[in-house]
Nucleic acid binder design. Sequence first.
RNA 1: GCAAGGGUAGCUAAGAAAGGUAAAAGCGAUAGACUUAAGAUCUAUUCUCCACAGGGAGUACGAGGGUUCAAAUCCCUCCCCUUGUACCA
Length: 924
Amino acid sequence: MVEYDPQKIERKWQDKWQKDKIFEVRESKKEKYYVLEMYPYPSSALHMGHLRNYSIGDTFARYKRMRGYNVLYPMGYDSFGLPAENAAIDHGANPEEWTDSNIEAIKEQQKRIGLSYDWTRLIYSHDTDYYKWDQWLFLKFLEKGLAYREDSYVNWCSGCNTVLANEQVQGGKCWRCNSEAEQRFLTQWFLKIRDYAEELLDFTDLNWGENVKTMQRNWIGRSEGAIIKFPILGEDRSIDIFTTRPDTLYGVTFMVFAPEHPWVGEWVKGTEYESEFEKLYNEVMKQDRFVRTDVEIEKKGIFIGKYCINPITKEEIPVYIGNFVIYEYGAGAVMAVPAHDQRDFEFAKKYDIPIRIVIQPFDYEIKLDKMVRSYESDGLLINSEEFNGMENRTAINSITEKLDKMGMGYATINYKLRDWLISRQRYWGCPIPIIYCDDCGIVPVPYQDLPVELPKDVEFTGKGNPLETSESYINTTCPKCNKPAKRETDTMDTFVDSSWYFFKFCDPHTEVWPYRKDIVNYWMNVDQYIGGIEHAVMHLLYARFFTKVTRDLGLHKFDEPFQALLTQGMINKTHPYCPQCDSFAVAAEKNNKKCKRCGTEYILKSVKMSKSLGNTVDPIGIMNDYGADSARFFILFGASPQSGLEWSDEGVGFASKFIRNAFSLLSEPPENIRKEKTIRDTLITYVLNKTIKEVTESLDKIAIRNAVNSIIQFTSEFTKYKLESVNKEIYEMCEENLALLLHPIVPHVTEEIWELKDKKGYISLASWPSYDEKLLTPDSDFKWKLMNNIMDDINSIKLAMKKEILEDISIIIAEDWKYRFYSLLMSSIEKTKNQGEIMKIIMKEKELKIHSKYIGQTVGKILKNIGKYTKFTITPNEEYQFFSDIKPIIEKKYGCPVNIYFEGDSKEGKAIQALPGRPALIIS
RNA sequence: GCAAGGGUAGCUAAGAAAGGUAAAAGCGAUAGACUUAAGAUCUAUUCUCCACAGGGAGUACGAGGGUUCAAAUCCCUCCCCUUGUACCA
């Protein structure tokens, strides 16, 4: 007996794979396949989500490799970002050393999983050879007019004198010093993703889930409407607002600006409205931004003493500010039509602003004094001068055209999507290659001066942007005029790094270009991208945007980066939860029985694994205990890739047990070998072919759990087959194919078996098994089920008899006329489920009429449980032959003689129960 | 709030586009075989109740309605959970 030692085997094969460089790939004539997992942040410890992501990716990559593709399967690290900077602030760590050591740690852990990466292609964002090209791309964006500067709000902590990320604002306060977070304007860099909004809405030919496509469509939020110019009374400028309802223009009775709109501050300064404005402004700035746009929330606003002019009626209309208007969307102001917009209606009622009806429903009339809510549906225009009587849908275009002629508006398309703010006032990111010169203004760093490297002489105090503490960095000379100048201290959003890394993997070590066009054109685009659903919108949208811009720069020929997308679910685990306080126990309290605050007894509730709750399970622990193959098998069988996964330790035990059994099944020789072929060989061959088909089709769809399930079932059948007695040739075929099917899931143990069986080369490089479609006939399927059903029936009777040991089993095959009746019944059921009609059809046959009583009863029985009866049948003689063939199997299993009769030859009363595919049984 | 996804037996989980078997598979549990024992393995059972012949009745796929001969599956309402929400990645 060969011992299964996962640790030894896994180390051995990982070393061999590396030594023989079997996963390193080059461009070739073979068809390529690019499998990619989302660029991971290199946190020091591997977690279950990683294990799952990589196990899915590696299984799929290995499968595609066995299918004969030239598979590109690389790994790299999204290594810029806040955590390194926080480590520097909190424990004085050097961000670069800290990040490098994290990468080393996670790389070692990844290697233990047995992932078939081409490690020579490793890249990481904080490598100057990588971020140099971030900067290069930024300059290209700038040249194309796709990068610009504009003022925008940030969360600001005056205590730390620094910008706060949203996650650093907790309950409206700074997470570090607990000061109140404020909103502050800064001039920052943006990328014009809106220029590509229309193209980003096109998902033609992409093999993505509808859910992700819908989320992106909603995020982009295209809406057709018009820009309407409302001149500001007493000023030269006008506010250009966007509306989808120009048909209601005659009903505009006021304007509402977002309180944070910069003009508002100017207008109220030094007026009687200033103090009231300040009050509302501060209140709104603290209000949760989700709450602000809630339709249920109380509308608050004030008049600010300013007027606009309705461009079409020339009326002066008052300007208000309101909490429900958001600066980021549209112009940061809306035209208010209280009669036809519920939000405006409530606002108008509250502040006693006039309401003017401009649309009347087709079939009834609304009256101003009886209105309790706005009328938002369609109708005919009134109070709208020459447009009176027009249907409002038509009026949308007509009014817009009129505005256009007047030069006061035009039809346009608006997007909810905002341009991408890439400026970060942080150290640990890619520097934006810009120099500010007093004389020359904003000057891009010349291409030959790239990369602009992050300086080392910085201080991490938690106050301000650390880059500003580096004199050597800030002070430079202007590339144009050579006078002293200052560097931009903003760095780029890390989403920039992850927006083009998939190109770099194709050609990681080139120095002249970010990547060479012909090489990228061979490998791209990514055939299968795998990652968490949490990236459905931002990362995936930014990467698509970059792909389109770099295409327009002539860097490659692709419109889309990711041809197919798999979004995996999250991993949850039960954790103590207090229903009273509606909160989970924190890590320190997780062993308590009762809630610390209210004394309520904890119940267990499922929640996603997180460090803060301490309900994480370390995959390294599992790999130490059971081996990487078990860990992979467990995580892949636990749930389908897309669905969430509930953690349970028991599954791990099963995974390990299964692999041990599979190992001995495949490594130990069978005891009973026979020369001749029997029905058993035919049946196991059928099941094997069926399994190969199922596993192949499942893996094509990355339905890995289904594939594993089929393999488990085949393994169980194969084990039984081996215990009975085997034909050598059939046995070896099953053995080899099972190893091949298992390989993508559990690569190490299958390599070991491959070697034990003296097979040539690596199983990792072997070909995927094929199946013979000709063997998968309804006839084989019927016989396979017939065998299993007869066993089930014998078991049921045995149980009802309460008999432990059986003495004799008789199998009685139905008479010929029953086959005629049965096939007639099955074809009639296709047409009708009505028993009377079915009986009429059957009773037309003279031969059957004499059995009318029996047929009546049987039809009733079968109709009750349609699904229980097979449509396919074989002839009585074939059935007789089949049972004669499997007779030894039944005799062996139940330890008693088995006899087979035709119904006509049997004197038993129960023989009448026999039906096609369901023989009568007499057991004693 | 908005957007997307989900809720199936003690547990994990398939089934849902094409409505038709109390609903695959695995775990766990129970009983038996093997074993000195444990473990491993094998066999059977596992929604409830009844039945000493493969059966019958009831209840059931988050809750409540509806469509249909027939609903986990189609439609409506509600509840709960997860993810994202633009400076975490």
